[in-house]
Amino acid sequence: METPLSHQTRLAKEAVESYVRRHEVIAPPVNPAQTEMSERAGVFVSLKIKGRLRGCIGTFAPTTENTASEIIRNAIAAATQDPRFTPVIPGELGEITYSVDILSPPEKVNSISELDPERYGVIVTQGHKRGLLLPALEGVNTVDEQLRITKAKAGIHPEDNNVEILRFEVRRYK
């Protein structure tokens, strides 16, 4: 028996399906089912097919009026604008699984001892270069791996330690 989708993942699924099938952007719920959906936060939406990433787009800080709108915007972008993948086509919709990460406000890290790749995501910044990696990702087991991957995403040399590091927590919904 399938696990029922959370409000967050159901909204992401509805947004992707409406956009891919009809090029329509759904409206956010008028009365969000949970207070969290009416708050403002950064949101990442990940799409997978058979356990493999199919798209992931997000914002580390809020860009819309509420989390529900942020989920809709980022779900559509994950399905259609992730530069690593071609846009999702209607025939794939039945195979996609969704996860939604709602981010806490980032906080500055003074020492890498304050990091834990299972608990915290990281944002690494150097000038205009910025990379973000979510927490609790399969295959990312150490702080060194987490920072190396995040620096690579930002276009920063892995040995360059002249960076600002921020950490954040997520509430992950599947």
Rank of each mutant, 00 (worst) to 15 (best):
P62G: 10
G55E: 07
E107N: 06
L147E: 13
S104F: 05
L11W: 03
N110Y: 12
L134T: 08
N162D: 15
E17I: 12
Q126F: 05
A68E: 06
F44M: 01
Q146A: 12
K153L: 12
R73G: 02
I156T: 07
S99G: 04
Q146S: 10
A152W: 04
H23L: 14
E14V: 12
V143C: 09
H7G: 00
I112Y: 09
Y173A: 00
S38Q: 14
P105V: 13
M1Q: 08
E114V: 11
E114Q: 15
K48S: 14
G91C: 08
L132G: 02
S18N: 15
I165R: 03
N110T: 13
I89R: 14
D160S: 13
H157V: 05
A75T: 02
S99P: 06
I102D: 07
G91P: 01
R172H: 00
S113I: 10
L47Y: 10
I89K: 14
Y173I: 00
L166N: 03
R172T: 13
F85M: 04
R130S: 15
V124W: 06
A33L: 13
N161Q: 14
G55D: 04
T67G: 01
A15G: 03
Q146P: 10
V122W: 06
E36L: 15
V143K: 11
H23V: 08
Y120M: 09
N31K: 12
Q126G: 02
G127I: 08
P90F: 02
L137W: 11
L93S: 08
G155H: 03
A75I: 01
I149G: 10
E159N: 12
Q34V: 10
S99H: 01
P87N: 06
N161K: 10
V20Y: 09
